[in-house]
Amino acid sequence: HEITLHINGRRVKLRFRDEKAAEILKEAAKKGLDEEELKKLAEELWR
């Protein structure tokens, strides 16, 4: 699955395995994680 989040006016595509991962990524984006941090988090969730 993929999700596209808008971060600092940019579109960031993240891959994720399940809905739980999608929710975690959305929450992290709301908390203000930047693009690099979100990509790292997405990679961690993928494993």
Rank of each mutant, 00 (worst) to 15 (best):
residue 33 L to K: 08
residue 33 L to A: 14
residue 1 H to W: 15
residue 23 E to F: 10
residue 1 H to R: 11
residue 45 L to N: 01
residue 5 L to V: 09
residue 45 L to Y: 03
residue 31 K to Q: 13
residue 6 H to W: 15
residue 7 I to L: 08
residue 44 E to Y: 13
residue 21 A to I: 03
residue 22 A to E: 08
residue 27 E to I: 08
residue 12 V to R: 01
residue 20 K to E: 08
residue 7 I to S: 05
residue 31 K to N: 15
residue 19 E to I: 09
residue 47 R to C: 11
residue 23 E to Q: 13
residue 14 L to K: 00
residue 9 G to H: 04
residue 47 R to V: 15
residue 4 T to D: 06
residue 34 D to R: 09
residue 9 G to T: 02
residue 1 H to D: 10
residue 34 D to P: 12
residue 30 K to R: 14
residue 18 D to C: 05
residue 22 A to V: 09
residue 19 E to Y: 09
residue 3 I to Q: 02
residue 3 I to K: 01
residue 19 E to S: 12
residue 10 R to K: 15
residue 23 E to I: 12
residue 47 R to A: 14
residue 39 K to L: 14
residue 42 A to I: 04
residue 15 R to G: 03
residue 32 G to M: 06
residue 41 L to Y: 04
residue 5 L to Q: 01
residue 44 E to Q: 11
residue 23 E to R: 11
residue 34 D to C: 07
residue 33 L to F: 14
residue 46 W to E: 03
residue 8 N to L: 05
residue 12 V to D: 00
residue 43 E to Y: 09
residue 10 R to W: 03
residue 22 A to C: 11
residue 10 R to C: 08
residue 39 K to P: 01
residue 28 A to S: 07
residue 27 E to L: 11
residue 12 V to T: 03
residue 4 T to E: 12
residue 18 D to V: 04
residue 22 A to T: 04
residue 3 I to R: 01
residue 45 L to K: 01
residue 35 E to H: 08
residue 13 K to P: 04
residue 32 G to D: 04
residue 19 E to N: 10
residue 46 W to D: 03
residue 44 E to N: 08
residue 2 E to M: 13
residue 32 G to A: 05
residue 14 L to G: 00
residue 30 K to Q: 12
residue 7 I to W: 03
residue 3 I to N: 01
residue 11 R to W: 15
residue 8 N to E: 06
residue 34 D to F: 07
residue 24 I to T: 12
residue 8 N to W: 02
residue 31 K to C: 06
residue 16 F to Q: 01
residue 8 N to G: 09
residue 28 A to M: 09
residue 42 A to G: 05
residue 17 R to V: 08
residue 17 R to H: 09
residue 6 H to V: 15
residue 21 A to E: 04
residue 6 H to G: 03
residue 43 E to K: 07
residue 32 G to I: 04
residue 13 K to C: 07
residue 4 T to G: 02
residue 8 N to Y: 05
residue 40 K to A: 13
residue 30 K to W: 07
residue 11 R to I: 15
residue 16 F to K: 02
residue 27 E to C: 09
residue 3 I to G: 01
residue 24 I to P: 01
residue 39 K to M: 12
residue 3 I to Y: 03
residue 17 R to G: 04
residue 7 I to K: 02
residue 38 L to I: 14
residue 19 E to H: 12
residue 6 H to R: 11
residue 32 G to H: 05
residue 36 E to M: 12
residue 2 E to D: 06
residue 47 R to Y: 14
residue 19 E to Q: 15
residue 31 K to H: 13
residue 23 E to Y: 09
residue 31 K to G: 12
residue 32 G to V: 04
residue 44 E to K: 11
residue 5 L to G: 00
residue 42 A to T: 03
residue 31 K to T: 10
residue 26 K to P: 00
residue 21 A to M: 07
residue 43 E to I: 08
residue 28 A to T: 03
residue 32 G to R: 04
residue 5 L to S: 00
residue 32 G to T: 04
residue 41 L to A: 01
residue 42 A to S: 08
residue 47 R to Q: 14
residue 9 G to F: 00
residue 14 L to V: 08
residue 39 K to Y: 13
residue 22 A to R: 14
residue 26 K to N: 06
residue 46 W to L: 04
residue 18 D to G: 10
residue 18 D to P: 02
residue 44 E to H: 11
residue 9 G to E: 04
residue 37 E to N: 11
residue 36 E to C: 09
residue 7 I to T: 06
residue 29 A to D: 02
residue 8 N to P: 03
residue 15 R to N: 05
residue 15 R to M: 09
residue 45 L to M: 09
residue 8 N to K: 09
residue 25 L to H: 01
residue 44 E to V: 11
residue 10 R to N: 09
residue 20 K to S: 11
residue 21 A to T: 08
residue 24 I to A: 09
residue 27 E to Y: 07
residue 23 E to T: 13
residue 14 L to F: 10
residue 15 R to A: 06
residue 15 R to V: 06
residue 41 L to H: 01
residue 10 R to T: 10
residue 22 A to S: 07
residue 8 N to V: 03
residue 25 L to N: 00
residue 47 R to F: 15
residue 30 K to C: 04
residue 22 A to Y: 10
residue 42 A to D: 01
residue 2 E to W: 15
residue 38 L to C: 05
residue 3 I to L: 15
residue 40 K to T: 12
residue 9 G to R: 02
residue 10 R to E: 06
residue 45 L to H: 02
residue 7 I to H: 03
residue 21 A to Y: 05
residue 36 E to G: 11
residue 15 R to K: 13
residue 46 W to M: 05
residue 4 T to V: 14
residue 43 E to Q: 08
residue 1 H to K: 13
residue 16 F to V: 15
residue 9 G to P: 00
residue 2 E to C: 13
residue 31 K to M: 14
residue 35 E to T: 09
residue 5 L to N: 00
residue 43 E to D: 12
residue 35 E to I: 15
residue 44 E to F: 11
residue 27 E to V: 08
residue 8 N to F: 05
residue 31 K to S: 13
residue 2 E to A: 06
residue 25 L to M: 04
residue 14 L to S: 00
residue 11 R to M: 14
residue 14 L to P: 00
residue 32 G to E: 04
residue 45 L to E: 01
residue 26 K to Q: 11
residue 33 L to Q: 09
residue 7 I to C: 05
residue 18 D to N: 11
residue 43 E to A: 09
residue 40 K to I: 12
residue 43 E to C: 04
residue 3 I to D: 01
residue 41 L to Q: 01
residue 24 I to V: 09
residue 16 F to R: 02
residue 3 I to V: 07
residue 17 R to M: 14
residue 13 K to A: 07
